[in-house]
Structure formats: C-alpha cells, structure tokens
C-alpha cells in the first residue's frame, strides 16, 4: 500500500475505534450476555426465561401499548397532515406545526410525565375540572395513570407529532395532477381517495406506523418516570433486572431481555426500511 493511501485509511480510524468501543462492544455485550452465566459458561436458561409467563406478559403489554399508540397516533397524525394539505410550504401555519411537531416528538421522559401528572394526575387540572363541573371521576376504578393504561395517552403525546413529521412528505408527494386527471375522467372524491391516494400512500402510512411502533416499544424514560416500581413493560423489566440481577432468580437476565427487544426492533425497522424504499418512488 502506498503511504498516501495508508494515510487516507488512517483518517477513518478515530471514528472506527469510537464506534467499536461505544456502539459495537456495548451492543454485542448487551445481546450476548443473555447467553452466558455470570462465570462465563454458555447457557440457554436466560433465553428460556424469556418464555416464562411473567416475561411473556410484559412483552405482551409492550406490544399492546406500542400497537395501540402507533395505530391511534398514526390516524390522528395523518388527519393533521391531511388538514395541512394545500397550505403554503413556507407559510406561517406550516412552520408552526412543523416546529411544534419536532419539539413534541422529542418531548419524552420526565418532563412529559410531569405534564400529564399536572393534567390528569390525582389533583390534575383536568381531573379536578371534570370532577367539579360534571361530577365525573376519571379514576373511579383506580388510578390508572401510573399503570400500563396510563402510558397510552402519554405516549400518544409524542407519537402523533412523530407521525406528522414522517408522514407529511408522503402526503406532500400527492400530485395535484392526479386529482385533476381523476376529475377529468369523471372520478369522484371517493374514487380519488380509494383508487389513487390511498394506494399511493399505503406503503408510507404502514412504514410510519412501524416507526411509531418501534418508537413506543423502545421508549423507557417516560414509563420509568411515571411508573416508579415494577416491571410492567419490557424496558421496565430491563430496569429491574439491571438494578437487581437476582429479581428473576437468574443472572444476566437483562441481556436476554435486551436480545428479545433487539430482535423485535430489527424486524420492525427492517419492515420500515423496506416500505420506505417503496415510498420514495412517489416522492421524486
């Protein structure tokens, strides 16, 4: 190898070393430790532990929360995108909705938990108002905000904005000429949406849906701030496995849970990128 060429490759080493130490090694350790016991011998016990009823139950809750918030979030987000159709791209309305969406999509974690406790906590603004004005007690059957159902409204708060961000470019890609062609050929509003717009938008909608699912499935901070104890969803179960390795009577259980999460994430994100390549055809 010539010295100049070697020098060129040398330029890649800082990034390569950094990524190996802080991304590759932690990822391998995270998904790999589940296959070993604490003293280093191979075991499938932790993996089998994933199929214990309690662990399966938390995976099921995670799937359920992610699916519900992804579907509802995608529908509401798509409605907002639809409402924005026909507004000017550089207009004030568009830039307000864009900025608000990008802030709120990032607005997870502790601050979001505070916001919802202030709104619909025990003494929250809405809770008290509903009680005083209509005599409705939203917590009649127990305070669900600090349990799995409580995650639904809270997660929707960042799912809808994420949908707006990811789905808007696709709706933007609908060409006005298609609507005109449909009208010229005697099509109705129904035929435009059912035969043209929805088939074109379907891959993008499904892709965004998967992204929302992955987003909810992997989010930890909001749930941790809201639910201080227990292991109701997978990320929280990783927390309790990390905090006390012996909670489930098994060592390295956190690693097995991490592996389970990564498998789900890889499948979902693979589906997302497959749908994304189909989508980009219409956005040129």
């Amino acid at each position: 190898m010539k010295p100049r060429v070697a020098l060129k490759y040398l330029g890649l080493t800082p990034f390569a070393i950094y990524v190996v130490i802080f991304l590759a090694i932690p990822t391998i350790l995270a998904v790999g430790t589940g296959l070993f016991t604490a003293d280093g011998s191979f075991t499938t016990e932790n993996l089998l532990g994933l199929f214990a009823p309690t662990v399966l139950g938390t995976f099921l809750s995670s799937f359920w929360v992610s699916a519900v918030t992804a579907i509802v979030g995608a529908i509401i987000g798509a409605l907002v995108c639809y409402a924005m159709l026909g507004t000017r791209t550089e207009g004030a309305l568009r830039s307000i909705v864009d900025s608000a969406s990008s802030v709120l999509a990032q607005f997870g974690g502790v601050m979001l938990a505070f916001a919802f406790i202030a709104a619909i906590g025990n003494q929250g603004l809405i809770t008290v108002w509903l009680q005083d004005a209509f005599g409705v007690n939203i917590f009649e059957n127990g305070v669900w905000l600090y349990q799995v159902p409580g995650l639904l409204p809270v997660y929707l708060y960042f799912q809808v904005p994420l949908m707006v961000i990811t789905f808007m470019p696709a709706l933007q890609g609908l060409k006005p000429q298609w609507a005109e062609a449909n009208a010229t050929l005697g099509g109705t509003q129904l035929s435009y949406w059912v035969r043209i717009a929805i088939p074109v938008l379907a891959p993008s909608f499904l892709g965004s849906l998967l992204l929302l699912f992955a987003n909810a499935f992997s989010s930890y901070a909001t749930a941790a701030a809201l639910i201080s104890q227990g292991a109701q969803i997978v990320p929280l179960q990783i927390r309790s496995a990390l905090v006390s390795e012996t909670v489930l009577g098994r060592e390295n259980m956190a690693g097995a849970l991490a592996l389970g999460m990564v498998v789900v994430m890889v499948v979902v994100m693979w589906g997302y990128s497959a749908l994304q390549t189909r989508t980009s055809r219409w956005q040129r």
């Binding site: 130490i21 932690p26 990822t27 992997s218 990320p235 990783i238 990390l242 994430m265 890889v266």
Partner: peptide, 15 residues
C-alpha cells in the same frame, strides 16, 4: 435507532 438506549445501557455498564 434499532438498538435503543435501554438496550445499549445493558452493554454500556461493563464498558
């Protein structure tokens, strides 16, 4: 994006 923070942190602890 695919390896979220909650997974990464499991391997970051020993690192």
């Amino acid at each position: 994006i695919t390896v979220p923070a909650i997974v990464l942190v499991v391997g970051l602890a020993p690192v």
